[in-house]
Design a protein around this nucleic acid. Structure first.
Length: 288
DNA sequence: CGTCGCTCCTGGATGC
DNA sequence: TGCATCCAGGAGCGAC
């Protein structure tokens, strides 16, 4: 599940790889991906344009073109962006694989950008939740209208977190942290991990979180997101880096995906429940 | 207000 | 081997 660290990893890699490239051809296999535009209009808008920068806001990847228009990509659950340096010659992590190259496009490829130098960017998405939109300006993208603070900037302070908890004192802490209009980019994995590190149960009521816990939680969110970006993100299921490699954060996961396994702190079995419809992992001994 | 349930979607796991 | 059923969940939406 791509969240902030995964999208930020892709942003860094693609900024390097795509900057200055000119789009020679656009191929759309799944027209719904580029809604509300048709594949033809979408392709015409991008054709011949040069890429200037690659940015990120929340879990949204923002590719800026030379004419000040944008290509916005949301990976949702199973989206992947794989860059192929020379057409037909992708090798994972720069090393030829025993079985040969990853075959691209494959049955999950929804869209591809082919560049004038022979390289290509593939958007794969098994579950088809993800989308790719062309926008004339960022103001016309509804998704961006309601995203909150970037948790890795200095503007996300301990005081800000206190303010959010105070604004919604009756909400459970987990859904509050998942609310993109408050903190932008946290998802199921990192919320569970941050709450474990702060020793707070996911169902705790925001108004009853102490000053000390608030401080721990703020620190945990920053530390975990930073570390995961350093490691290239969490490849739990489908997420891959832009060269097809896995991210390196899985060994650092303390609770997510570890139901029934011993807690790394106290050895008690990690529990799994459902909180507001989301699979939720925690240690009932360490978290109060 | 906040929460709940439904929708989109499909491979993988589980059950019989 | 095959078929049915459930599960995973980001975000938008309507209902209560």
């Amino acid at each position: 599940v791509p969240e902030l660290p995964e999208v930020e990893t892709l942003r860094r890699e693609l900024a390097q790889k795509l900057k200055g490239k000119t789009i020679a051809r656009v191929k759309v296999w799944a027209p719904k991906t580029v809604r509300p535009l048709t594949a033809r209009v979408f392709g015409n808008r991008l054709h011949g344009k040069k890429i200037t920068t690659v940015e990120r806001r929340a879990k949204l990847l923002i590719i800026k073109l030379e004419d000040e228009t944008y290509v916005l990509i949301h990976l949702k659950m199973t989206g992947q962006l794989i860059f192929e340096p020379i057409k037909g010659k992708l090798v994972i992590g720069g090393h030829p694989q025993p079985g040969g190259e990853i075959d691209l496009p494959n049955k999950f490829t929804r869209l591809a950008l082919y560049f004038t130098d022979g390289s290509a960017l593939y958007f794969n998405d098994m579950r088809r939740f993800g989308w790719v939109r062309s926008r004339q300006s960022l103001d016309e993208e509804p998704f961006l209208k309601k995203v909150g603070l970037e948790p890795l900037t200095d503007r996300f302070t301990e005081k800000k977190l206190t303010e959010f908890l105070g604004r919604y004192p009756k909400r459970k802490i987990k859904p509050l942290l998942l609310d993109q209009s408050l903190i932008a980019g946290l998802g199921n994995i990192y919320v569970d991990e941050a709450l474990f590190e702060a020793r707070i149960r996911p169902e705790r009521i925001s108004g009853e979180i102490t000053k000390i816990e608030n401080g721990k939680l703020h620190k945990a969110i920053k530390r975990i997101l930073k570390l995961s970006v350093q490691k290239g993100g969490t490849s739990f299921r489908d997420y891959k880096r832009s060269d097809g490699r896995a991210g390196g954060f899985v060994p650092h996961l303390k609770v997510y995906g570890r139901a029934g396994e011993p807690c790394k702190k106290c050895r008690r079995a990690i529990e799994k429940t459902t909180v507001v419809g989301r699979g939720t992992h925690f240690c009932s001994d360490c978290q109060k």
